[in-house]
């Protein structure tokens, strides 16, 4: 942004060296990722692999080696691209964004934090210090997938799913979608409809039409709204199906 002179800050603070901002740790509330956690570190983290394996799966889609080495969780969240992986992950995982400002600390849910493409509810004096990923009931299965024009490009559409099965029925279903709205969204109608239904591929298939309800993606230089919408049920089926397999494996 600065290289194009789209942003010309008078002061720029380098937070790269603040000790502890890049830590991934287990807390009483779940898992906390410091703002400076690099994509590559998240992909390698054993703690994340054990608890939220979808993170590593998603990180494989983030840009390329050198970008994954430098790019951070907070950078991705604050950039608030509706196609990006981290906004989708915190939306899917009911994460909380931890913010430090002149008035002290606060947290924001993804719905509160992401206002529009490239717009967040951050004040100028605020800083994202990390994210909390709350624990989820186990065993569950997760899966991530996306369609991009080339390897590492921003997703045309991205989807992440979390599925928990009890007694052969969906006890919990979460489906997050990126690239189809101003922000990452959850497919609430599908989640509600599937919960309690028999945990089968057929049930997933029957629910897919609900994924595109209320979605109004935009046409842009990369893809038409119609193409994006066509991908939603396809990716939803793929991630829900894989998550189901993993939940019952």
């Amino acid at each position: 942004m600065m290289n194009f002179r789209l942003v010309q800050p008078k002061r720029l603070v380098d937070i790269n060296r603040i000790a502890g901002l890049g830590r991934i740790e287990k807390t009483e509330r779940g898992i906390r990722l410091g703002a400076l956690t690099r994509h590559a570190e998240a992909a390698r983290s054993e703690l994340l692999a054990e608890n939220v394996p979808i993170v590593a799966e998603a990180m494989a889609h983030v840009a390329h080696v050198a970008i994954r080495n430098r790019g951070t969780v907070a950078g991705s969240l604050c950039h608030a691209d509706p196609s990006a992986e981290w906004p989708l992950l915190v939306t899917l995982l009911d994460g909380e964004i931890e913010i430090l400002g002149g008035d002290g600390r606060r947290t924001a849910t993804p719905a509160e934090f992401f206002l529009a493409p490239l717009v967040t509810d951050m004040e100028e004096t605020e800083l994202v210090t990390g994210i909390h990923l709350p624990p989820h009931e186990t065993p569950c299965g997760m899966a991530f997938d996306e369609v991009a024009q080339r390897a590492g490009d921003f997703a045309v559409v991205a989807a992440g799913a979390l599925v928990r099965v009890e007694d052969g029925r969906f006890a919990e279903v979460r489906l997050g979608l990126g690239g189809v709205s101003d922000t990452s969204v959850r497919a609430a109608a599908l989640e509600d409809a599937l919960t309690g239904r028999p945990a089968t591929a057929e049930a997933i298939e029957a629910s897919l039409a609900l994924t595109v309800e209320d979605l109004e993606p935009n046409d842009d230089v990369h893809a038409s709204a119609a193409y994006r919408l066509s991908l939603v049920p396809v990716l939803s089926r793929r991630v829900l199906g894989r998550a189901l397999e993993r939940a019952t494996a």
């Binding site: 369609v147 024009q149 045309v156 119609a226």
Partner: peptide, 11 residues
């Protein structure tokens, strides 16, 4: 020819 354009043709 991109997937996006192909989609329009298929539709």
């Amino acid at each position: 020819i991109t997937p996006n354009k192909l989609h329009a043709l298929v539709v």
